[in-house]
Simulated assay, not measured.
Amino acid sequence: MKMPYNFKLFLSLSFFFAFGFGLIAILVRLNKMDRFDKLVTTYFQDFETSFLTNIMQSFTYIGSMSFIHILAFVIFILFYFFLKDRSKLLLFIIVLLGSHYLFRLLKQFFKRARPDFHRLIEIGGYSFPSGHATNAICIYGILTFVLWHHIPARWGRFIFSIFSIFMILSIGLSRIYLGVHFPSDVLAGYLAGGFLLTMIIGCYQFVIVKIDERTS
């Protein structure tokens, strides 16, 4: 099933995500998110058990660059040699690289220190926005998009969409639970990643439409 062209919708969503990120960034700069961050972090860490900590560490690993490199290699093999959909493969690579450099640039710009209360794992670097959250929404979002018309059954597409949403939320939540990110970091990561994802997809669909018009 071919996914319909919705480049105007995706570009509109990109502006929405950009506005949301800008709003969160301003509130963080003004220290208006401190109470929210503390309350949400405390709520999730109240569920702390050794078993749950192990699960959250697993989700954090799935969102790490080490695992993303493995996933990217598998996707490359799948699309290049089996599905032979090289335009979608290029789209996946662009989103993957864009996500990586976007959150790094934003971290260097904002230079927000990580939480210092009840951290369950140790990690360096800046906190805002969450790189795990940015990568999660970009990677699982673009996977849903590029695999959409390769999954023939509607129930299959629905299940894969639910799986992607579950992974995005679980990876972000793991960072809050483990105490290495403020909730506002994770929210900002989702918004920054959502902006990049929808903007690139919107531009991609615009190009595809123009190509179709020239060849029709």
Rank of each mutant, 00 (worst) to 15 (best):
Y5L: 15
N6S: 09
F7T: 03
F7I: 01
F7V: 00
F10C: 10
L11D: 02
L13C: 06
I24H: 02
I24G: 00
R29F: 08
L30N: 13
K32Y: 09
M33A: 10
M33I: 10
D34L: 12
D34M: 10
D37A: 04
L39I: 15
V40N: 04
T41R: 09
Y43H: 05
F44W: 14
Q45C: 09
T49H: 02
S50G: 03
F51P: 00
F51M: 06
N54R: 14
G63A: 07
H69N: 13
I70V: 13
V74D: 07
V74Y: 09
V74G: 00
I75T: 11
I75A: 10
Y80V: 08
F82A: 01
D85S: 15
D85L: 10
R86T: 10
S87T: 12
K88T: 01
V95F: 08
L96V: 07
L96F: 15
L102Y: 05
F103L: 07
R104W: 11
L105A: 09
L106E: 06
F109W: 14
F110E: 05
R112P: 03
R112Y: 05
L120T: 06
I121Y: 04
I123Q: 15
I123W: 03
Y126G: 04
Y126L: 10
S127T: 01
S127Y: 00
P129G: 00
P129E: 12
H132R: 12
N135Y: 06
C138R: 06
C138W: 08
Y140Q: 02
Y140C: 09
L143K: 04
L143E: 08
L147N: 03
W148P: 01
H150C: 06
R154M: 11
G156W: 13
F158S: 09
F158H: 12
F166K: 04
M167R: 03
S170W: 05
I171T: 04
L173W: 11
S174A: 10
R175L: 03
G179A: 03
V180Q: 02
H181M: 10
F182L: 05
S184Y: 01
S184W: 01
D185L: 00
D185G: 05
L187Y: 02
A188F: 02
A188K: 08
F195W: 14
L196C: 06
L197N: 02
L197K: 05
I200H: 03
Q205G: 08
I208M: 14
S216I: 12
